[in-house]
Simulated assay, not measured.
Amino acid sequence: MPMLKILVGTMYGGALDVAEQVKPLFESAGYEVDILEQPTVSDLTDSPTDLALFCVSTTGSGDFPGNFVPFARGLDEQSPGLTDLRYGVIALGDSSYGDTFCGAGRQLDEMLQGLGANRLGERLEIDAMETFMADDAAIPWVEEWIDAQRLKVA
């Protein structure tokens, strides 16, 4: 069974809630799913990862949440080759912050692509000003992502 890792960057639990809500969709598509609340670079490099989904909220001025900072710093310092990594990004933010809206998700996306990873489809950006419950936007996006990227294995 292929492995999907959902790496979560969250401050108040919204991104973790999204990860928990979309997990059954991937299980139904034939994946073993592991939600990582304290992700490390070795989670991607030291064990098989057939697919990764990043659920990342933005804090402050476009910053990574505290639990995600060590992961992002590790990517920056270690510069692992991620050419075999296929991934998606669900970025959570608040458009009232202007230019830094979904800044953490956008920055992560750039970092991953710079390391050779292959994003499947477009990044989902969820605006807290428009969507009260982030999973209301994430669930249909994940369903479409699984279909459009032909990710179903079951």
Rank of each mutant, 00 (worst) to 15 (best):
F132G: 10
Q149I: 05
D34V: 14
A72N: 09
A104I: 11
D34L: 14
K23T: 02
M133K: 07
I139E: 14
K23S: 05
V22H: 00
R119A: 03
G116P: 08
T58S: 11
V18I: 12
E125F: 03
S47M: 09
G9S: 11
F54E: 01
P70T: 06
I35S: 13
V153A: 08
R106E: 05
L16G: 13
Y87F: 15
S42Q: 13
R73F: 14
R150E: 13
G103C: 05
A134C: 14
A117R: 04
A19L: 10
A29I: 02
R123G: 08
N118P: 08
V89W: 01
N67L: 09
V142L: 07
E130V: 07
G62R: 05
L82W: 09
A52G: 10
L124A: 12
F132C: 02
P2W: 06
S57T: 05
D135I: 00
P140A: 13
D50Y: 01
Q113W: 01
L53W: 01
S96N: 11
Q38D: 14
D94H: 12
A91I: 09
T10K: 01
V33D: 03
A91Q: 07
G14M: 10
L85P: 06
G121F: 02
K23Q: 07
D17R: 13
L75M: 08
P2R: 06
G88R: 00
T83S: 15
E20V: 04
A148G: 06
L7D: 03
Y87P: 11
E110F: 01
G81T: 06
M111R: 11
T40Y: 00
A138D: 03
A117S: 02
Q78F: 00
I126Q: 11
C55A: 15
Q113S: 11
